[in-house]
Design a protein around this nucleic acid. Structure first.
Lengths: 353, 353
DNA sequence: CTGAAAGCGCTAACAC
DNA sequence: GTGTTAGCGCTTTCAG
């Protein structure tokens, strides 16, 4: 059956006209079936490699050939329609490119989703409520398996009503409302780890430059600092805790105050502050870590790994947050409905201590 | 009709049992129709706000109410199935979180796609060919409107065969193969702009620290430098062009050589090198811009905006690249099939000059 | 081992 | 103005 009349109505026409699959009119399962001289059911069984299906080798080959020749691709929309549920996981983010952070959440979610045969549908809301509602509606209409609702910095959030029409998990944020599963970074442990790096290197008088901006990170990182000190039997000295706006300028600006404290080490709320502090310290002729040891928080690659000297810090596990989010959504991980799951923030030591 | 028999077979049952829309069994158009006592066609017309449809106000209200009461959401899969084309645009990226760059391409693409009623389906390939093939196959199966094939740094690329089964445009990369539409940054203009910043501030002896790594950026940024010099009638001096690995360490390491050249200004291949150079200059007791003016390239926010002093640089228009990519895909922008469209790299002046 | 047929939720003629 | 009906491409009993 390799001769063909050029009848645009017959399924063979498309295959005949071009070796490359035709882009215009996608090839359907039915066309494959007709080309192979079998029923659509048979083709379906073969395409989906159904376990219990007993297909003659000959039939199987004819179908395989037809699939290849016609360049057949299953229509996922049709599959989804009959099966009822799609292989999509939605990810709504309040910022996509403002920081490298959101990118890592996306990355982790995408890798993990892919691993389980799901594709990621993403939407950026820029914190705009209307956009957010639309984005969630869109995902619902595409019958996503579930939705990951993520924020670029760790914070409390309200659960948009429409989110509840689907399975969902909060990523890098949490809610006090019931039945809101969530994954967040373990700030307290992170703060403890950061302080421990300093402690382990013999420092006893350690300052903490905290953020001025209220956030779970502000409280958690401070608490971690206190716990680490306490574990070493070092009394907490409130005067050693400074506050500044959490960016380079804030860190730089805190230098003077810091130097008055007579400390040998500083733990900064984040890497950006540490970067600014580096400048301040240098201007005072101080060397790192010789005159002052410093650790940061966040492990913002572009900064931390390339400061001079490279900065010891604690990693904010965004990739893992995204991955854990989809595992939780898919029911692969434990997921208490009443409390957020905390992800470990691994310390990464470089040479600033 | 607020009394109801608890018959799971009747459409009303779902609505009756809960005010919140039921998650388990999505409400269908047919159920809405039955609840409102009209046909599915009528509901469809109302849901889609069809122009020519003449619907009685009373009917319209009954339907609206039913939709609200039942918490009806259209099933996008079914819509797509009948209409034949989906409202998806695929974005395949070779790196999602390695740099903030890819995130901005995603961001731009997502915003622009959304603006035209499209959702973004993303896939990360980490440069893995097999993953890439799978990702493209997935997008094809979901009958995407088209695919954006993007790379995190500007480079030449081959066009994967399956990409041609769909509409596509290359973003931040290009191919010499025919019919491969592409959007890339205008490196030459960027290099010219960077050099111009220095020229405009009276500098005549300007060094360029280029990358050692071959790339369109390496050639383009150098050519822009030459063109800018030439436009000012300054002869090109090969000895003023150094090369180093394009990161902080490379910039730092180039300091010594640079100082031998007796220049008053330096244009760095990228911001990371400039950051390293800042350290090198400082160690030599030199101030910026007093003793040496410096400009970078890329406008990597975390770095450039917060160095001390803030770095003048040229922006790599990733957001715009993503947005332009979808416009081109949708046929909204001019898109020559034989040559890549170049996007302007806007200079951003801060205080390092 | 394979085919016929029903139907997933929706839209688009075309009736009435 | 509104209902009927025929599919869109696919999966899935159920026959044979």
């Amino acid at each position: 059956m390799n001769s063909m009349e050029n009848d645009p109505g017959t399924p063979m026409a498309a295959a005949a006209s071009t070796v490359q699959p035709a882009r215009a009119h996608p090839v359907t399962l039915r066309q494959v079936a007709e080309a192979a001289g079998v029923s659509t059911a048979t083709v379906s069984l073969i395409v989906n490699k159904k376990k219990g299906a007993r297909i003659a080798a000959d039939t199987r080959n004819r179908v395989r050939d037809a699939i290849r020749d016609l360049g057949y691709r299953p229509n996922a929309m049709a599959q989804t329609l009959v099966s009822g549920s799609s292989r999509f996981i939605g990810l709504v983010a309040d910022a996509i490119a403002t920081t490298p952070f959101a990118g890592q959440i996306i990355h982790g979610a995408q890798d993990e989703a892919w691993k389980h045969g799901y594709a990621l549908l993403i939407a950026n809301t820029e914190g705009n409520g209307e956009l957010e509602t639309d984005a969630i509606a869109m995902m619902l209409e595409y019958k996503v398996r579930g939705i990951l609702y993520s924020t670029w910095f760790h914070r409390a959030t309200a659960v948009p009503a429409s989110l509840r029409e689907s399975d969902f998990v909060l990523v890098n944020c949490f809610s006090t409302e019931p039945d809101a599963r969530a994954v967040i970074p373990d700030e307290v442990q992170g703060g403890r780890s950061a302080t421990d790096i300093l402690l382990r290197n013999g420092h006893r008088r350690i300052a903490f430059i905290n953020a001025t901006t209220p956030a779970p990170a502000k409280d958690g990182r401070l608490q971690g600092y206190r716990e680490a000190l306490e574990a070493e039997g070092i009394p907490f000295d409130e005067s050693l805790v400074l506050e500044a706006y959490p960016d380079q300028e804030g860190g730089y600006g805190a230098t003077e105050e810091l130097l008055k404290r007579g400390v040998t080490a500083v733990y900064c709320y984040n890497d950006r502050m540490a970067m600014g502090l580096y400048d301040g310290l240098r201007e005072n002729g101080l060397s790192i870590p010789g005159d002052m040891a410093v650790v940061g928080f966040d492990n913002q690659e572009v900064i931390a790994a390339h400061l001079r000297p490279p900065l010891s810090t604690v990693s904010l596990p965004h990739y893992e947050l995204g991955a854990a989010g989809v595992r939780m959504l898919l029911g692969l991980d434990e997921s208490p409905a009443d409390t957020a799951v905390k992800v470990h923030c691994p310390p990464v030591e470089r040479s600033s201590v």
